[in-house]
Structure formats: C-alpha cells, structure tokens
Amino acid sequence: MTTEDVLLVSDSTDTPGVRTLTLNRPKAYNSLTVELKERLLAALRDAAADDSVRAVVLTGTGKAFCAGQDLKEHVGLLQANDPAPLHTVAEHYNPIVGLITGMPKPVIAAVNGAAAGAGAAFAYASDIRIAASSANFLMAFANVGLGPDSGASWTLQRLIGYGRAVELMLLARKVEADEALSLGLVSEVVPDEELTARAQAVAAKLAAGPTVAYAKIKEVLAVAAESTLGEALAAEDAAQGALGATADHAEAVDAFVTKRRPTFQGK
C-alpha cells in the first residue's frame, strides 16, 4: 500500500488480512482537513472492496485519535467565502460513517488519545472500540453552536442510551477512558503502550474468522436497530439462508464433525 503524509495505510506483515488506517496529523491532533477526509474516504472504499482485507483498524498518531473538524481550515474557508465547509457533512462525514458501519468486515477503533466531534463519531461507528488509558471522548458540538454530525446522534445513544447521550451532548462533558468503559462506550481499556498490540490481536482474530458471516451479522443488527420484530426475523432468515450456502459454513460443520479447528477463507 502507498503511504500518504496525512493518512498512513498499512497491511500487517504478521497477520494476513488486517489493514490499518492511521490518521497522521499529530501536531494538529489529527483534526480533519478536506485532504484527510478525502484520503480516508478513498482508503475505506478500497478496504471495503479488497477481498484480501478481512479486518480494519482505525487509529491515530500522537496524543489524539482525532480532534474532529480542523477549525482553522474551516474558518479560513468560510472567511474566503468558499462554500466547501457547508457541504462537508454530506460530502465527507456521512459517506465516511456509512463506509465504516457498512464495511462488510469488522472495523476496530484503536482510540489512542483524545477523540472529539467527528473523530469520536468515527469511533462510535466502528464495531469494536479499544481505548488507551489516556483516551477520552468529547461531544462539543454545542460549544460552537452546532448539532451532532457524522452519525453521532444515531450511534451514541445506541451505545449508552438516550439519557447519557443527550447529557454528554448538551453539557459537552469529556468522558475519560475508565468512565467510557463503565458506560459501555468502549469494549476495553489498556495501557497506552499496549494499545497497538491489543488492537492488532483483536483484528488478527477477526481476520481469521468467517468474514461473510461477520458482514451479515452487521447487516441484520442494522436492520433490527430500526425495524419491527417481524422485519428482524425476516432479515435473520434471509441471512441464514445465504450463509448456509457458504464455504465457511461447510468448513465449520466439517471441522465440528471431525473435531478440529476450522480454517475460514472468508467465503
């Protein structure tokens, strides 16, 4: 994979199938410029389409995971009467979140530090969130006279409930890693120096699993989140019917009968 200044894209040399996307503007706390958003969009599309990629890790460099929108660029463009900032939700944030949630393979957010605004929302949209002990989350949209974007209105309340979500958004209160764990906002908290290894280990486990089944699990959960029981049952039935015909299911059944560990191909 190629390496860009603002976004590092790498495939694991130790574990086939793991692709890591690293936001790389540490001096600006990995805040999101137009360039970084466009490169992230392209990298997510590539990961989704590449069958050799079976798990994705999203992380940042330096002291922050992602501080959200780069406000210096945002203000500069507005002062120059450039309409681009007014369209970034539709052109960048919504598609990024759609790609993360719709990724037909697991996405792990390795939250290495501060995650704010859209940056926090990218973590919320991921399937699994592992936080460093120095990580924290902040929904500060109200402080700049804005409402939530990047899907945070949908994802955050599903993770921690409406009451907690509205409190964090109205008060713009920072949530440290330990509280995030107690709220169910993250899956686990590890020492800073162990974050990369832990996220890669989780990704490696998932990359060796039944990728098509993972995609269907994400799909039926998304349906169930906003459907009737009958609709959820129908989605589950359709998914099971499709998965029953996969090579991975056949391999799992044979492995069970022959009392061995299955070897999944993601097909």
Rank of each mutant, 00 (worst) to 15 (best):
L21S: 04
L23I: 01
N24M: 06
R25A: 08
R25H: 11
K27R: 14
A28C: 01
Y29Q: 09
Y29C: 08
N30E: 14
S31P: 11
L32I: 10
L32W: 08
T33W: 05
T33P: 09
T33E: 09
V34I: 08
K37L: 05
E38F: 00
L40R: 00
L41D: 02
A42V: 06
A42T: 13
A43Y: 14
L44D: 08
R45S: 06
A49V: 03
D50G: 09
D50Y: 06
D51L: 12
S52H: 14
V53A: 12
V53Y: 12
A55H: 13
A55G: 13
V57Q: 04
L58N: 03
T59Y: 12
G60V: 01
G62S: 11
K63V: 12
K63E: 06
A64K: 06
F65G: 02
C66N: 11
C66Y: 07
A67D: 09
A67R: 11
G68C: 02
G68A: 02
D70V: 00
D70T: 00
L71H: 05
E73Y: 03
E73N: 04
E73D: 11
H74W: 15
L77E: 11
L77M: 15
N81T: 10
N81M: 07
D82N: 12
P83Q: 05
P85H: 08
T88A: 03
T88F: 01
T88C: 01
T88K: 00
